[in-house]
Design a protein around this nucleic acid. Structure first.
Lengths: 346, 346
DNA sequence: CAAAATATTGGGACCGTTCCCATGAAAAAT
DNA sequence: ATTTTTCATGGGAACGGTCCCAATATTTTG
């Protein structure tokens, strides 16, 4: 079963020279006669020669390809981070392959194995909401494959990462709700296993404390981020004896699902209940009323993660994060105020 | 520079057996003594052996990996197609790598080269809106790498594809606008180079004709799908002596951008102008008012494309589409009526 | 013009795996 | 007990490149 691909040996035979010379001509090695190089390049072009990256990566132990693993991409958050990553990596001459885990731990492990088995030079990761075991990441580190995390960063691992200040952003978001006079602020939180979920909740709690609003456990629910559940929890909140007058949601999809429940009940946003989300998904600006939310610099997060990965890749001596503290980059967020908290005056 | 990865030779040495036997044990070849197999598997596990797919693909000329190339993924359309593809391919034991072209022809060519140089077994494609030259796809075909197109299918190439009936769907959408009494129906069309853009426009034209509405060229504009332009064109429409009372937009992002212009001008949707989009992006259900649009079965499109690719991959004798007509699968669409054409009665 | 330096080319090892073929060992058949 | 068959293993080529070293060709130098 001969492959249909042209090889350097085919070219060498045709020109009656050695494959070494062909290789040199194609890779731009200086010691090739101009005449020879020209002949090789021409024939390569007419024969539609296409270098075999498998053979190359196999023999050179480096592939000039990086992987990026994201938990999902139905919101605009991860796609726009990926675009940022691609910008930087392509400019640096790297290929980027994308893996999507569907929020499944098993898929994540499989995809990690896939990327390692293809010997990618490095990986940019945001783990799934299910991930509790981080061995597959530790394995990559042991293999000398640098990782950079973003958004969801495991505490169990000392890895370079780029994040936003979730605590501070949540604090501000809740303070904003307080500033518009809300006192019964509910919080739909994410699973405790996610660090940013915990940080956002802490920001919520501390903002309440600062403004002397007692913490009411009835108004806080952690959930697994499966959107269908939002309906249940939100109905529960609205059915309380004294329902909340505001909601701080862990992310925009949650906030938007909650808005639907509120509207279906005939309540007004923001008059009856003000709502704040997190991340500034494209949808946040489209829903009615517009959703107040914490904007994250997604493109910049991707670019920054890529830069950090390049640093790792270019380090003459590999950083050993079993002994050295891994670097963190923290990027700024911005509270975007829309009509879900402040009704338009007109 | 020794690699940190364990190889079968390392295992063979430790156990004092040949690498052939190790290979057989690991791949599940029947002719290995149970005792030996167990020893190999155990050691492989403790040494964290990870097969080298580069070496494997290199030596076997097949990688059990397929590529998927999409023009962008900021709308929900392509991500959800991808999820469908992954479903089917993973179940069939294939790996899926995703490439995103940012609607750039150059990136598309680069990514095609990348996938070919990694010797993927097949590719599922939707090309960019810029793509006019299809040589890079023809090259893959010549290499014996099967392609399946979806959504945007080049006419220049005879390739398996999965599509929806764009003509019929557009026809229905426009008929719907006529049925609610609209007579001056504008159309924001895509570039003529895209087949589905032409088909949707033809559906528009024929629906008008069927209902005896004369075609008014002033109400049709083709554009390059860069959203900023929508503002200009929409303003132009609204500034006409007798502005349109409805808009049929080539896709949902276009429709949504148009809605913003309309709202900014203080006009009411649908009373002053009714709007229909195409594809039923997630956003379509979120905007205010809800956008009437043509739903495409995105997940099913992905699953179908994957099934068709599997057929190509499993064909004992490769299909030669230079002599044989390539198969097409057409999936049904559904018009989703929301408040952008029919105001809620309440 | 011979010797030395340099430019160009060829030869072959190497990367990790599979797979075919040969060999040896054990089991079955005579 | 001897021959045949089957089972288990080892040996080595092949895959497509790169790269080091050796060999040859060309140019420069004294």
């Amino acid at each position: 079963m001969k492959s249909k691909y042209t090889t350097i040996i085919d070219i060498a035979k045709q020109l009656n020279i050695s494959k070494s010379t062909v290789s040199r001509a194609l890779t731009g090695h200086p010691n090739v006669k101009e005449h020879t190089r020209k002949a090789v390049l021409e024939l390569a072009s007419t024969m539609e020669y296409q270098r075999n990256s498998l053979a190359l990566g196999f023999s050179k132990h480096t592939t000039h390809t990086i992987g990026i693993m994201v938990p999902e991409f139905m919101s605009t958050y991860f796609p726009s981070v990926i675009v940022g990553v691609q910008d930087v990596m392509q400019a640096a001459g790297y290929n980027v392959v994308i893996c999507q885990q569907n929020e499944s731990y098993e898929t994540e492990v499989d995809n990690m194995k896939l990327l390692l088995s293809y010997r990618v030079d490095g990986i940019i990761v945001s783990h799934t909401k299910e991930t509790r075991n981080f061995d597959h990441f530790a394995l990559a580190q042991r293999r000398g494959v640098p990782l950079v995390f973003f958004n969801r960063v495991p505490e169990e691992l000392n890895v370079p990462n780029v994040i936003v200040n979730d605590y501070e952003a949540a604090f501000q978001a809740v303070e904003h709700l307080i500033s518009i006079g809300r006192k019964r602020i509910a919080h739909l939180a994410g699973p405790d296993a996610l660090v940013n979920s915990r940080l956002r909740r802490q920001g919520y709690l501390d903002a309440l404390k600062k403004h002397g609003i007692p913490y009411n456990p009835d108004l806080v629910l952690s959930y697994d981020l499966t959107i269908e559940k939002v309906k249940i929890y939100m109905k529960h909140f609205l059915d309380l004896g004294t329902p909340p007058d505001a909601l701080f949601a862990i992310n925009d999809p949650t906030a938007i699902a909650a808005m639907e429940v509120v509207k279906a009940k005939g309540l007004r946003i923001p008059q009856d209940i003000a709502i704040v989300g997190f991340s500034n998904d494209l949808s946040a600006g489209l829903v009615y009323p517009g959703l107040t939310t914490v904007a994250q610099p997604t493109g910049e997060i991707g670019r920054m993660a890529a830069e950090m990965l390049l640093q790792e890749l270019n380090a003459k001596v590999k950083n050993d994060y079993t002994i050295k503290k891994a670097p963190t980059t923290q990027l700024p967020t911005k509270l975007i105020i829309r009509e879900s908290t402040v009704a338009k005056t007109k």
